[in-house]
């Protein structure tokens, strides 16, 4: 859902903010003084209207639920420019990642591909399935025909361990 719609009737929820804070390793973001460097340089701003400065401020004011339900947090390209250039070390990227985790927790709608990836990793250890590559001359190659080593799947214990940490509260 769009953030504007979510925010229209929203009220701050400080418990949600506390929950958010417990998941973030650093509290530096409270130092944000809205200089807007992050948004001025945001890779996802022009195309998808991601405004990191707005997210930082909304989190601080307690609008965590609204952000976690919104689709805006899924527009970050993870280019890390905002982390690098923030004069107050507020790290909008890390905030967005925590919000994404919270979205998953509350079973908000998230891009399907992320959940598919979880299953793929569980099955094969890898986030992607091996592909065949068609060359410019229309020849088809795969790892085998390229004489590349076979992919070895993770040991059996991996699935249990991965499930354990995925399902942990």
């Amino acid at each position: 859902m769009g953030l504007t719609d979510l925010m229209s009737m929203a009220k701050p929820n400080m418990d949600a903010r506390e929950n958010f804070l417990s998941k973030l390793s650093s509290r530096e973001f409270v130092n944000c003084f809205q200089c807007l460097k992050c948004t001025s340089g945001c890779t996802a701003l022009k195309l998808l209207e991601l405004k990191p400065h707005e997210i930082v401020k909304l989190v601080n004011l307690g609008f965590v639920d609204e952000l976690a339900s919104s689709d805006i947090i899924w527009t970050c390209v993870t280019c890390l420019k905002c982390v690098q250039r923030c004069p107050q070390k507020a790290s909008p990227y890390h905030i967005i990642m925590v919000l994404r985790n919270m979205a998953v927790e509350k079973e908000a709608q998230i891009p399907e591909e992320y959940l598919k990836t979880v299953s793929r990793i569980l099955e094969t250890g890898l986030a992607e399935a091996p592909q065949e590559v068609t060359t410019r001359k229309m020849e088809v190659f795969d790892r085998k025909s390229l004489n590349l080593p076979k992919i070895t799947f993770p040991r059996e214990s991996f699935q249990v361990a991965f499930m354990k940490i995925m399902e942990e509260k």
Partner: peptide, 28 residues
Amino acid sequence: VAGLPSDIRSAPEGSLYFDVYDKGTNKL
């Protein structure tokens, strides 16, 4: 303009350009 640019760029011929988001207008 209530906002700072993240970076400043120069085109091949040397001219300068940059983006800056303005808090007042909510515009880039």
